[in-house]
């Protein structure tokens, strides 16, 4: 009858965790958690305010133009139509909130992830240390994140973004590490042989050559954060996730689908643009740079000629 250990004894791990978190972690480290929240809150607030302040027509013109510049005509057209459609559905505001959350999360992922990736590329020891952590971060289902986040940071949009950052961070670290390690050994040797400092080596050779891989990591991070931003609605984050979430709660299928459509369109737009950013960077940028310098040169020469004539 009694053939399980749990019939006699269950380990009260849940109680222990609760004690550790409630009695020790929260009271003792409250300032730390506050401090972590502060910059995210600032960036998020600023971005959200900016995106909502930006007049709709400006947005609809500028973003497709960027898409055109970076990714070409097709993506630009798609972006334009998507933006019009999102507004047509009446979910513009929610979309902007979600976009602000994503951009905030990605910004912090890059700020934290790229340096960690560089560190991991430089030191095998650090890479060995960080790898299992990243593995765990990527295998834990996103819902499980939310529990400690709520306990430590409370509910709301900022904890939602924090959960997103943690969830979306691994790819950018991994691919930065990978990208730098993949730079041909002979190129690194060439850099060193000509007397580069480690800093010069990093910025002149390693990062530029790893950029494609880093951008691929950024793209993945972006996609992950997009999916997490929706789930984060569970702990009180707003935006399109909330639309889906409330739609589900009220069995309002139409409303939930609207949120879903908005998320999908946003995802495709961001994916296309960032992918193109990673791939077409080398081909595109000199063109822009050249046209700018040419324009400036023309300006200088023109004014010179004008002055001389006077």
């Amino acid at each position: 009858m009694a053939d399980r250990i749990s019939d006699f004894y269950t380990l009260p791990l849940d109680d222990w965790i609760e004690v550790v978190v409630k009695e020790w972690l929260v009271p003792n480290f409250r300032p730390v958690f506050r401090a972590v929240q502060w910059p995210i809150d600032q960036v998020l607030g600023g971005l959200e305010e900016f995106l909502l302040w930006l007049p709709y027509p400006v947005f609809v013109v500028v973003v497709p133009l960027i898409a055109w510049r970076v990714a070409g005509g097709g993506v630009a057209l798609f972006t334009l139509l998507s933006l019009l459609f999102i507004d047509l559905l009446g979910i513009w505001r929610e979309t902007m909130v979600t976009l602000a959350m994503i951009l905030t999360a990605v910004t912090f992922c890059v700020l934290v992830g790229v340096p960690l990736g560089i560190l991991a590329a430089r030191s095998d020891r650090f890479a060995g240390l960080i790898r299992p952590v990243l593995d765990i971060m990527q295998t834990i289902p996103p819902f499980v994140y939310l529990v400690p986040i709520v306990m430590l940071f409370g509910v709301g949009i900022v904890p939602g973004v924090i959960a997103t950052i943690i969830f979306a961070l691994p790819p950018v670290i991994r691919l930065t590490n990978l990208g730098i390690r993949q730079v041909q050994a002979e190129l690194v040797e060439a850099g060193l042989a000509f007397g580069s400092t480690r800093r010069q080596l990093l910025f002149e050779i390693q990062i530029p050559l790893a950029l494609r891989t880093i951008m691929a990591g950024l793209n993945q991070t972006l996609m992950l954060s997009l999916s997490m931003v929706v789930i984060a609605a569970l702990i009180g984050a707003g935006g399109l996730g909330l639309t889906v979430f409330t739609g589900l709660g009220r069995l309002d299928i139409g409303r939930a689908t609207l949120g879903g459509i908005g998320i999908v369109l946003l995802a495709i737009m961001l994916d296309r643009i960032t992918q193109a950013l990673g791939e077409g960077r080398h081909a595109q940028r000199p063109g822009l740079k050249e046209s700018l310098t040419r324009w400036l040169k023309g300006l200088v020469q023109g004014s010179k000629a004008y002055n001389e004539r006077r």
């Binding site: 002979e186 060439a190 530029p208």
Partner: peptide
């Protein structure tokens, strides 16, 4: 010192 490499090792970027 200066060095020339077998596979050129030119910086492609």
């Amino acid at each position: 010192l200066s060095m020339v490499f077998q596979h050129f090792a030119l910086f492609p970027h």
